[in-house]
Design a protein around this nucleic acid. Structure first.
Lengths: 337, 337
DNA sequence: CTGAAAGCGCTAACAT
DNA sequence: ATGTTAGCGCTTTCAG
């Protein structure tokens, strides 16, 4: 059996209150001498306070929940790492939860996390309209920060990326290179961020005197395969498309495959721009031009925000929007070079 | 304030003992009628048992710790996902801990996890000789499963890959293709698994009548850059190397870069074989031939093993060795095709 | 079939 | 400066 506060108290000939005071660094009310003595005993007997017992009375567990669709999706490890680093700095541990964007699993995890009295939750939700359980979660009073995928609701704390801007600058880059027929493979359009990227594309086209042509826009699902099929459809159109805005890097790899298998060259025949800048985008051949999403920083920020929320600090903003950044590499070039 | 067992008891006009019995599915000792009534109340009032309170008395938290170097390293998300999936099936949650192979951080996390009374820990350690805290951890009685990186000690539960075999079949594949001068870029040699892969390479060379030439073996650190520099050194030798066994995929990408920048073609001029088979190996151009490590399954297995350990089930084996598998793709070919 | 009571290890008033 | 006491919400003997 592990040594408890009682044991230390007995050994030090003091009450457990006194021991409690010193292990919690309460400055007042303990003489330097007894403090030393207790600290000595603590070290000697390798006493570790029982966080469970502590949690039961304080209602604080120094524990966070991180709910994401899938850690295996290359976009999330950076986020998770950011969250965990932040948490670790402040003395928190984080539960990792993979939901596969599945509503039932989301509910299961939310329940489990509540039962375990996590102090707060960072939530990346499937953006499917059914957001009842999230709103409920928010109402339930447990601090929560929404990340990455926007949820329609006021009274929410969140860390997001300006996806409109991202779609805009991606398109602008292509236009600046002289492209006029720019295809687009979107994310799943039930998701707000995917719609925003598309809107950015549209908006940019518009502002630059180019017409939005729905027939060269295809909906994908952010996975490699839909990049392949989307590009195939696009190329089958025979519309002399000279560039494609592919709304995430994973799908962009799919596009690479299709384009190459058709005998075209990137960027000579077709320019490709992606979105996310996951680490292997620079490994690809040619290196992928893309819109960087600062995933690590977003994770870091989300966790810091959540912890401040938990610890009752004032936050200057409820929503933090990160700005995407154009990373020019080799997959885009002037038209008809 | 959340509703407690007391509230339910009061509402049902029974003692908390009875409520406890039904929420814990104790079959005996509750009439069907009261059970129904209580269940009804539980649902109605959305009663959730407080896992902290429960943990305080049972000493079980339904919680696992997963200690890895870095979730951002593409090898670990699959493992983490396997662990988490397994845990979820059995009703456990898992704390994610990134140590960066840093001894101090390892200790910090171990302490935090012990304070939080996790039921068990899955540990992937920096393989630096200093393994005192792990052995101590093991002695401390908390169930622990070592994963991936072997630790020298008996009385250990672990899930590993047969790295010798991996190094062997990688080399064998190259030899079968007619290669005789096969360079090698190893992992960090303080790590047992890295040494084993190298031994496999040596062993295979030997058994096939080829001499082991130390001058064409360079030590890397499993990161991209060391693949680049290792390959540069190798090529600078001008030893007519026709193939390289690069001991993980990340470094293999580095090799790709170097080789291409020198104007050589893969596999025409030089064959490359990697190790791990992280998901993007098949995205690369040319697709990377590699040795697959079943990361997801290893994670799954480790967690299942740990949970059985926790729940007192008998395990037929303390060590489970996974077999690596040769995945032939496009980066290896016959010499002088 | 049901309940009373003790206690898990700790914190937090409230004394002294 | 230190101690006493009362819980936190639950499980678990032990009685009835």
């Amino acid at each position: 059996m592990a040594v408890t506060i009682k044991d230390i108290a007995k050994l030090a000939n003091v009450s457990i209150t006194t021991v409690s005071r010193v292990i919690n660094n309460k400055t007042e009310g303990v003489s330097e001498e007894t403090r030393e003595r207790i600290l000595q005993l603590v070290k000697e007997h390798e006493y570790q306070p029982n966080a469970i017992a502590r949690g039961l009375v304080t209602k604080k567990t120094k524990t966070l929940g991180l709910i994401i669709p899938d850690i295996t999706n290359p976009f999330f490890p950076d986020i998770a790492r950011g969250v965990e680093d932040s948490a670790h700095i402040y003395g928190y541990n984080v539960f990792l939860c993979n939901t596969d964007d599945n509503l039932d699993k989301e509910s299961e995890y939310i329940n489990a996390l509540k039962e375990k009295y996590v102090d707060g939750i960072i939530f990346t939700s499937s953006s499917i309209p059914k957001q009842e359980h999230i709103k409920e979660l928010i109402k339930s009073g447990i601090p929560i920060v929404i990340m990455d995928r926007r949820i329609e609701s006021d009274d929410i704390y969140g860390v997001f990326l300006d996806n409109y801007e991202g779609g805009y600058i991606a398109t602008k880059h292509l236009i600046d290179l002289g492209h006029k027929k720019i295809g687009c493979i979107t994310g799943p359009l039930y998701s707000k961020s995917a719609r925003e990227r598309l809107e950015g594309y549209k908006g940019c086209l518009n502002e630059n005197g180019l017409e939005y042509d729905e027939s060269i826009v295809f909906e994908g699902d952010y996975k490699i395969n839909s990049g392949i099929t989307g590009s195939e459809k696009l190329l089958n159109l025979n519309k002399k498309i000279s560039a494609i805005f592919v709304c995430n890097d994973l799908m962009a790899y799919g596009s690479y495959k299709t384009i190459r298998s058709r005998g075209y060259k990137i960027p000579d025949d077709i320019s490709i721009i992606g979105f996310d800048d996951i680490y292997l985008s620079q490994i690809l051949e040619p290196q992928l031009t893309t819109i960087r999403q600062p995933a690590y920083d977003m994770g870091l920020t989300a966790a810091r925000m959540l912890i401040k929320l938990i610890e009752g600090e004032k936050l200057n903003r409820k929503i933090i929007n990160f700005k995407p950044k154009l990373i020019i590499r080799q997959s885009t070039d002037l038209i008809y070079k």
